[in-house]
């Protein structure tokens, strides 16, 4: 196999997600009454970026062969916290942002510690920690409310040079500053290796525990970034259980659409970001085609079902029946 072929195969999932997103977005803007304008793109970006952050957080855990069912609750918790702290003078606001991010990272690290050192299954452990994080969010905001530094919020949700949505720039910055260095670092490779085969990774002397812990911690941090942006968009904190659950669910859908293997060790957060943007765009297609919003949950469910069924196509390539049971 030639070098470029190998590289193409490695990024196939990401490229497929990008292709799906581009096609969907073209259909979306072509049918949108306002067309391809800066306004339409800004609205779409602001909606998509939230899910993109949560999906990126989910990816970091999924590549270690884990799953984070508390990611939506970390997102809610940091939203509620931000609605208290990210206010006032620039200095206070900056302090608030730091605290919110630190709390997110702490939540992620807690998940990681329980899974790695407590040796519990990620799925059960994060269900339980999710309940705890939701409880804390509810403690912070029993009723929707609070406020946020509106200058910062408007700057980050507006447009740069009146064209480029600032939230997209922020998303790209996070990908470049957090995901790219992480995935190329020794710990990032260890997280991948642990997801691919923990025993082999251990035998090769990779720092799998620290790699996994870092993956969980960064996952919490990125989920907190999502929570911050939610606060910037809504100007309030709201501990809505259904919303947290939906984000967890959609993040898994985005990860699958983004070509990240749920068995771990394969895929990229960039793919998941495109998966998230594609998922949101598909959901919004209903509105441009002027259908009853009542159909949206069913429509999103069917898309999710179609996306995962694509994964089953690999069965046709299986030569030996025993490979079914991997």
């Amino acid at each position: 196999m030639k070098d470029w072929e190998y590289r193409l195969a490695e990024h196939r999932g990401t490229l497929t997600a990008l292709a799906i997103f581009v096609v969907m977005f073209i259909i979306y803007t072509a049918n949108h009454p306002a067309g391809f304008t800066a306004n339409v793109i800004q609205t779409a970006a602001n909606k998509g970026v939230l899910l993109a952050f949560v999906a990126m957080a989910q990816t970091m855990v999924v590549i270690t062969a884990g799953i984070d069912l508390s990611v939506g609750m970390i997102f809610l918790l940091t939203n509620c916290l931000a609605s208290w702290l990210v206010v006032g003078s620039p200095l206070e606001t900056a302090f608030g942002v730091l605290v919110v991010l630190a709390v997110g990272a702490l939540c992620g690290a807690t998940n990681g510690a329980i899974v790695i050192y407590g040796r519990l299954q990620p799925i059960v452990a994060t269900i339980a920690t999710g309940a705890v994080y939701f409880g804390i969010a509810l403690l912070l905001r029993p009723f929707p409310g609070g406020s946020v530094n509106e200058h910062l919020a408007d700057a980050l949700t507006g447009r740069i040079f009146a064209v480029v949505p600032a939230s997209l720039v922020a998303l790209a910055a996070v990908v470049l500053l957090i995901w790219v260095p992480f995935s190329r670092s020794v710990y990032g490779r260890a997280a991948y290796a642990a997801g691919s085969s923990e025993t082999s990774a251990y035998m090769s002397g990779m720092p799998i525990r620290r790699g996994k812990l870092l993956a969980y911690t960064l996952s919490g941090l990125v989920a907190a970034l999502g929570g911050l942006f939610l606060t910037f968009f809504t100007y309030t904190g709201d501990a809505a259980f259904a919303s947290g659950n939906a984000y967890t669910l959609f993040s898994i859908a985005a990860v699958v659409l983004g070509g990240v293997s749920l068995f771990g060790g394969k895929g990229s957060a960039i793919g998941a970001v495109f998966g998230a943007l594609a998922f949101r765009t598909i959901g919004d297609l209903l509105f441009v085609f002027d259908l009853d919003p009542l159909w949206q949950p069913l429509f999103q469910g069917l898309i999710l079902l179609a996306a995962i069924s694509l994964g089953a196509l690999a069965l046709f390539r299986v030569r030996n029946r025993l490979e079914w049971f991997l």
Binding site: I67, P297, L298, G301, L304, S309, A312
Partner: peptide, 23 residues
């Protein structure tokens, strides 16, 4: 038969069942 991870299939059917019931 399709060998899709159960976590994913059941999440998706949950979403579809919800969609059908909402409609």
């Amino acid at each position: 038969y399709l060998r899709i991870p159960s976590m994913i299939v059941t999440l998706a059917t949950n979403a579809v069942a919800q969609g059908v019931m909402v409609v």
